[in-house]
Amino acid sequence: MKAAPFEYSRPSSVAEACELLTRDEDARIIAGGQTLVPMMAMRLARPTRLVDIARIPELAFIRDDSDAIVVGGATRQAALERHASLAARLPLLARALPWVGHAATRNRGTVGGSIANADPAAEIPLVLVTLDGSIRARSTRDDKVIAADDLFEGPMATALALDACLTEVRFPTWSHARMGSAFQEISARHGDFAYVSAAAQVALDGDGKCVACAIGVGGATAAPTRLKAASAALLGGRLDDAATREAIAAEIAALDIMIDPHASPAYRRRVAVTLAHRVVIAAHDEALSRTPA
């Protein structure tokens, strides 16, 4: 199980990386390599050249903006997990990250890599979609922002051009005083890709009415899906358990569910409803426990 031969470059800037990618359409970026290397070992991926962006200084950062935490594309998942303000500002991501692989893979795996790889069951893309985040992608042609909604196109498929480098990931933060979040997933074993995962973040006003709501499900669909209708339906009122479930079930009923050998589509659909419902309730209860501003 040895990779097919390839060339290796370690550019020192994004510009140089983009240049290398432009020159060879079969070149691939490697950052943490936690997904790409197994594919190469099995010779299911055969890049002609690896462009190693892991040590480009401008790609490894975590920045606390006023309305977002912005993370460099090659920032390691473990570094983000340890980021001081993460639990307070991005509790949903803080809750999701321990589900990403295992500690040893998070030590090498990058935030941008997980997003660019676009596994339908991956946790970081789900959080990005749920929070309506975005990424920035640079190539020799352009430097553009892609909204999470437009980014994920299907299993292992994104709107990222093959010659583009994912330079930063923007996770929007909420400023509500009464905010709660929850993340749950189900897989055969802890650390495996989820059959279904669900993420929710809920903000309440002083009366306990829902002022912001984000719900997403992963694993069930070809790409992580934000439950926009359900989220909208919950806004403005006090959360009602049955109505929440109904809104979620209605939206999930209309989704195209993935078919693979690991779990039946019926299972995925049912469990997506169950988990989405549970995370909304858990997020709501957490928000409710917080003191109003």
Partner: peptide
Amino acid sequence: VGALADAVA
């Protein structure tokens, strides 16, 4: 897991 839950459902 999936088969178990499907049978229960």
